[in-house]
């Protein structure tokens, strides 16, 4: 199967370790992964802020770059939902505006073959035990677009439960939004910060070392809040947990900003340079 990694612009720029984790994980499961260099951004931030017309060229680029692959895998619930839920809607809107169905037809082929990572693992590869080992206590936050947009359901939790050494703790109020919401975090920063602080307090109450999610943009907000509130927890993307093995353990501190917790600390900047250990 020709599988393309759609990493997303945020991960490419700020969280390359998540991308390396996806490559490691899928390679370990016998999937050959390609990273088409023409990929950039799905246009989600433009679309959701009210700039649909600016998002259109980016959606067309996405369809062009990824069209030839059999499956497109992304470690982001919200960017996955952008392609699956909102690309068809963009096509519909263009049609309704009398611009014909060119956009709809261009975007249609990539929509059904775009998978969020945990969906791809469980539904396409049919695995829940990916052979991972991660000896830490973890609590899982289902991010909104993965939960309500894509309907990921219990897939991430099933994957986490099968990880060796991992103790999964239930997060109180798990399904409540963390308050990131893209430009919402800036436009309504007071409410966003209050939501983030409540999410962090709930996460802390579990006593877990790690807060895991399937979206680094939400983790950037939650982790940034954790750092400011000086909690001992660290945010980790689910790909990094699933990529970790006994032979090649991963610290998985990347989603944490400078100053997050005891483990990340000042060292988190250096983690960005970490090479996969052979």
């Amino acid at each position: 199967m020709r599988v393309a990694l759609f990493l997303t612009c945020v991960n490419d720029t700020l969280y390359p370790d998540t991308g390396r984790a996806v490559v490691d994980l899928l390679t370990r499961l016998g999937v050959e992964v390609d990273f088409p260099m023409g990929q950039t951004c799905c246009g989600q931030a433009h679309y959701n802020t009210g700039y649909r017309h600016e998002a259109e060229p980016l959606a067309r680029r996405f369809a062009e770059v990824f069209g030839e692959y059999e499956a497109i895998v992304t470690p982001s619930g919200s960017c996955g939902a952008m392609v699956r839920e909102l690309y068809p809607r963009m096509g519909e809107r263009a049609r309704a505006e009398g611009r014909g169905d060119t956009l709809a037809r261009t975007l249609a082929p990539v929509v059904p073959k775009t998978y969020e990572l945990t969906e791809f693992l469980v539904d396409v590869l049919g695995v829940t035990d990916v052979g991972a080992y991660y000896p830490h206590t973890v609590t899982y936050h289902p991010t909104c677009h993965g939960l309500r947009g894509l309907g990921l359901g219990d897939r991430p939790r099933r994957l986490l439960r099968a990880v060796g050494g991992l103790e999964l703790r239930e997060l109180p109020g798990a399904e409540e939004c963390c308050g990131f919401g893209g430009t919402f975090a800036l436009k309504n920063s007071d409410v966003s910060a209050a939501m983030g602080a409540d999410k962090v307090r709930n996460a802390e109450s579990t006593g877990a070392e790690v807060l895991c999610a399937a979206d680094n943009s939400c983790l950037m907000h939650i982790g940034g809040t954790m750092g400011r509130l000086r909690t001992g927890m660290r945010p980790v993307h689910i790909a990094e947990i699933l990529a970790s093995t006994e032979a090649r353990p991963r610290a998985g501190t990347e989603a944490g900003p400078a100053g997050t917790g005891a483990i990340a600390g000042a060292g988190s900047r250096a983690n960005g340079t970490e090479e996969p250990k052979a």
Binding site: D17, D24, M220, G223, T225, G259, G272
Partner: peptide
């Protein structure tokens, strides 16, 4: 005001992929 800034890594994923031919 309420959150730490994300740290920029030494190398983007795309740069790493090109340098190492996908690892």
């Amino acid at each position: 005001g309420t959150r730490e800034l994300p740290a920029v890594p030494a190398e983007s994923f795309r740069a790493w992929w090109q340098r190492t031919r996908g690892g």
